[in-house]
Simulated assay, not measured.
Amino acid sequence: MLTTSEIRIRDPFILSDASNHTYFLYGTTDENVWEGPATGFDVYHSSDLEQWEGPFPAFRPEADFWADRHYWAPEVYLYEGSFYMFASFKAEGKCRATQILKADNPLGPFVTITEAPVTPIDWECLDGTLHVDQDGTPWMIFCHEWLQVQDGKMCAIRLTKDLRSPDGEPVILFQASEAPWTKTWDGTTYVTDGPFIYKNQQEELLLLWSSGGEKGYTIGIARSASGNVVGPWTHEELPLYAEDGGHGMLFHKFDGELMLTIHTPNNSPNERAIFLPVTEREGSLKLK
């Protein structure tokens, strides 16, 4: 068994399985996170968010898999009876991209469902996250990277029901510089990172996302004025978390408490997952 503080992980993501009273922890788990070659993704499981069993190999690439580095930010969703992983991958001479994988079990093994990613082939992209509309239409929200566009863009693309391919062209939701709390990463560029959709009690869509702030890696909240994924999106004045931690997502504990998980600090090899209770007030989210 490992404690949370013993697990080095970036971009933590929790899948809660109420049927087995089990939390599954996914994230960027390669030791050499910034270079190649990559190994894959590991998963841990726990009944209390404190003591974890693992690591277990959730994904290891097939011999002919196109990417060999930057295996980042896996997110896992139960959708149409199977478990789907959205994750970022990179290879020399190819754009970083989000690919979708599938398994029958939260522990994997996850395998690719298509040969190619679902993000545009000539876009540098990362951090795909799933959102399913009220009518059952699946969307993927993802980032068009600052590495290519300088002012990072948050985008959405409709997917086919089987999640195997895009069903239309990407829609730009906003650019990082539009939020009042963002700061440039290096004096000239703005980062978009780690989107995650949350529906509040008024059935409005809130989008958690990360960028640079006054104290480093920061999480802010955007709100869809129309109530659907294409927006338009407005930005809350103050960030949700501003203490050099980010790439957040929300989940409910088995007692119903809403939780935010992030990694902090944002420097390797010291990054760790933390779990913070969150409350919903006046349609927005606040740390308790």
Rank of each mutant, 00 (worst) to 15 (best):
137 T>L: 01
136 G>K: 08
151 D>W: 06
108 G>P: 07
130 L>T: 11
121 I>N: 09
112 T>E: 03
150 Q>D: 12
131 H>L: 12
140 M>A: 10
152 G>R: 05
151 D>I: 03
169 E>V: 02
162 D>C: 02
122 D>W: 06
132 V>I: 15
165 S>P: 05
185 W>I: 14
169 E>Y: 05
191 V>Q: 06
118 V>F: 02
155 C>T: 01
177 S>T: 02
183 K>I: 11
120 P>D: 06
135 D>I: 10
150 Q>K: 15
168 G>E: 05
136 G>V: 09
148 Q>A: 05
167 D>V: 01
156 A>G: 08
140 M>T: 12
156 A>H: 07
175 Q>M: 05
119 T>N: 01
177 S>Q: 00
191 V>D: 05
190 Y>T: 01
122 D>Y: 04
153 K>Q: 15
159 L>W: 00
137 T>P: 04
158 R>V: 03
124 E>F: 03
126 L>A: 13
156 A>K: 07
184 T>H: 00
131 H>D: 11
155 C>V: 03
181 W>E: 08
129 T>E: 14
147 L>W: 01
183 K>R: 15
152 G>Y: 00
135 D>A: 12
169 E>G: 02
190 Y>G: 00
110 F>G: 08
157 I>Q: 06
164 R>L: 02
111 V>A: 14
169 E>L: 04
180 P>G: 07
128 G>K: 08
125 C>D: 14
172 I>M: 10
179 A>K: 12
108 G>T: 04
177 S>N: 04
150 Q>G: 00
177 S>R: 08
183 K>T: 14
141 I>C: 13
173 L>V: 13
112 T>F: 04
173 L>M: 13
117 P>G: 07
111 V>Q: 15
112 T>P: 04
167 D>K: 00
176 A>S: 08
121 I>Y: 08
125 C>V: 08
115 E>Y: 00
146 W>G: 10
119 T>S: 03
178 E>T: 12
149 V>T: 07
191 V>R: 02
174 F>R: 11
116 A>E: 13
109 P>F: 09
182 T>C: 04
131 H>E: 12
180 P>S: 08
134 Q>P: 10
185 W>L: 15
127 D>W: 08
